[in-house]
Design a protein around this nucleic acid. Structure first.
Lengths: 336, 336
DNA sequence: TTGAAAGCGCTAACAT
DNA sequence: ATGTTAGCGCTTTCAA
């Protein structure tokens, strides 16, 4: 296999200088028609492909962006990635990705890796709340944009209004006339969970009711279908008078477990107990009883984060905040 | 913001030459203890981060790999990506990804982009069967490895034995005593579909039965849950004597639609009609009736493709072939 | 409009 | 063990 041709090779085949080849590549208008044609022919004949690293070294501007998420296999992040991809495609930038699996050491490792690659910037879903490593990277000159952050940090970023999401879900159940709502939540140490609870309670207050009477929070040990199933069993074991007349779940996986359990036990959904989830994962609409849920604009989160990175901001700490959206399906309102 | 420090800065702060700094970075054993300590201190004090592009330009060896898949939002590819990630992490290589959305023009675009980045190699799920662009890239010196290919091409790659998968599914249903099996398949123009049909028929023959009597193929217009639902309705509309006593679906989404429809119609699954899917997507185990399915080793596909790329192969066209696996759940065998 | 030449940050060969 | 230096492929003045 012969060596990759360089601008020098192109120049000599075309009978011009390397400067002219570079101009054909970057400022074709500066080059006369015939010359440009000769150079382009040489490029094609040689199969010349410019070297991104040489270009970056000399011009100082990167052709890539780094993204660090918790887990690429999670549909939420996957959709976010597609949003990033779409924004980067507009500028022909390469996207580097990695998953931290909630490990701060991995996060640091990948930050450093992207820093070495001198990427245009790094889009991060931070593992923890200690952003000192992120700050160090930023202070060394690499732009950092947060995704799904708390919307109140020292970095630019995009976030979703979780309190509003909680509000939407519970207001919907109240609209349906329900007054004994159980919220199957995660621990309040997770900001998203805390915010959703806050919004849920506010919805009750806004309806002129007493949250302590109407809304009962139960904190789950995990946020998956099995935990939802266990919680649903516990609810069914309660004396009739204490049983909820509606369930709001902190995510769709939990809702899935709840739904499965209620249906198996012969509890009619939504007539006896409507169920609302959170996230609108792809499967929510395909279940036996399609799931009412709170949709987050995942694609837009990614797109906007990339946009925040690429577009020069008036103020460098710009925050973009999205509102989630209620998607009503059969698990809360009988088909009609 | 001050300029990024370079090896020259580190050298002058540490009072050594740039060669020594480079040695500390790449061959620390060549440097004496005290000197190395001084250099490392200078690196830390300055916040020096080596430039990957300068290193690549000089050393000629890339720190990144490119991956091109049909759609990053598809759980199948996501899992493959995690496999790639895991293999690359072993060598601290960055992973660049992009989705073609089945568009050959996009595929070409990304191939070229990665070529410019002079990646170690490119892992591709090709859009079509015309691999001439891939061949051009390879002939210019970039390694190309195929994923989920037909296992019989001019490129190294990994593939899965779809005929075996079809065989496993139908053999399982035959074992259950079923003799009127409907296979809800995709068009035979898709290689995977054709191979699965071949395997399915062979399973019948291997059982000493006549495939034309035992196995009926129905080709669906789409391979999603709605198509499965429509197909299931059609099956239920058949006269009793022509109704199948088992259904094998070309993927889990189709199976999901079938399952939903049968259950709603009051058909007992698995007692009356066992259902088998294909892929073992995450949700297969979480359905009302957990789905029996054929699992593909997605993570391993990615891992092995990356391994094929990175590890010097004895023969450059090495093929890795995986066997899918039957996962029995309640949709084919009543819980016990 | 085109050419000549410097130099981006780094590694590796060679010299000391 | 450490220093010196050429040069990877490219862009970008500056000159012609």
């Amino acid at each position: 296999m012969r060596q990759r041709p360089s601008v020098t090779d192109v120049a000599s085949v075309a009978g011009v200088s390397v400067g002219t080849v570079s101009n054909v590549l970057n400022r074709p208008d500066r080059v006369s028609g015939p010359t440009r044609a000769r150079v382009e022919k040489a490029i094609a004949d040689l199969g010349f492909v410019p070297s991104a690293s040489a270009r970056q070294l000399r011009a100082g501007v990167a052709q890539s962006v780094g993204a660090i998420v918790l887990d690429l296999a999670n549909p939420f992040f996957t959709s976010v990635m597609r949003g990033i991809e779409d924004r980067l495609a507009e500028e022909s930038l390469a996207l580097m990705v990695s998953s931290t699996d909630d490990d701060p050491a991995r996060e640091t490792h990948f930050l450093r890796m992207y820093e070495q690659h001198e990427v245009r910037g790094i889009l991060v879903t931070p593992v923890g709340t200690d952003h000192s490593e992120l700050a160090a990277v930023r202070d060394r000159g690499t732009r950092v944009v947060l995704m799904d952050s708390d919307g109140d940090s020292a970095f630019p970023g995009v976030s979703v209004d979780d309190a509003h999401g909680g509000h939407l879900a519970v207001a919907h159940l109240l609209d349906l006339g329900r007054r004994r709502i159980t919220f199957l939540n995660g621990p309040s140490t997770i900001r998203q969970c805390l915010d959703r609870l806050t919004g849920a309670r506010r919805a009750v207050v806004d309806a002129g009711l007493n949250p302590d009477e109407v809304l009962t929070e139960r904190v789950l040990p995990a946020l998956n279908a099995d935990a939802g199933e266990a919680a649903a069993h516990a609810l069914l074991a309660l004396p009739r008078s204490e049983r909820p007349d509606a369930v709001f779940c902190v995510n769709d996986l939990v809702a899935l477990g709840v739904l499965r359990t209620l249906l198996r036990a012969g509890v009619e959904v939504p007539q006896r107990i409507p169920v609302v989830g959170y996230d609108d994962i792809g499967f929510a609409s395909m279940l036996m009883v399609p799931l009412t849920t709170i949709r987050q604009p995942t694609h837009q989160i990614g797109w906007s984060a990339a946009d925040l990175l690429l577009r020069p901001q008036p103020e460098s700490l710009a925050q973009v905040r999205f509102s989630p959206e209620l998607v009503v399906r059969a698990s809360s309102v009988a088909a009609g």
